[in-house]
Design a protein around this nucleic acid. Structure first.
Length: 113
DNA sequence: TTCCTGACTTCGC
DNA sequence: AGCGAAGCCAGGA
């Protein structure tokens, strides 16, 4: 993959994450699938890791397919990610998003481009 | 160059 | 239901 394409992939991930509505969450796999990657879920997390430095990327709204806060250890404080979600009205219990099927936001279903 | 690792997902037992 | 292994792609050593 060329440098320009990688840059574009990063931008796409950031754009989708920025579109996640307040109080909703999405998953790595859903974003990867929306971007056309077969199993690029790990790449989404990898891109988000680099996006952690950017303040306007709500990376805390991206969890794994079971609603688990797998990326919490990259938010500085261990409970930072859970607190950010709770501030948006999302119930978090034992590092898991409650009512995940309700707050789940699928870009390929709700984001029409 | 090869080998290992990872904010994941899916399949099999 | 829960756990382990494989598949996946990109970067770093």
């Amino acid at each position: 993959m060329k440098q320009h394409e990688k840059h574009s992939f990063f931008n796409d991930v950031y754009a989708v994450v920025r579109c996640i509505p307040h109080g909703r969450v999405s998953t790595y796999g859903a974003i990867a699938h929306y971007l056309g990657l077969r199993s690029g879920a790990r790449m989404v997390g990898w891109a988000l890791n680099h996006a952690a430095a950017l303040p306007d990327i709500p990376a805390h709204r991206v969890v794994n397919r079971r609603g688990e806060l797998t990326g919490k250890r990259y938010f500085g404080s261990p409970d930072r990610m859970a607190e950010l979600l709770r501030q948006e009205g999302i119930q978090v219990e034992n590092d898991r998003v409650q009512n995940f099927d309700i707050v789940f936001w699928d870009p390929s279903q709700e984001l029409s481009l």
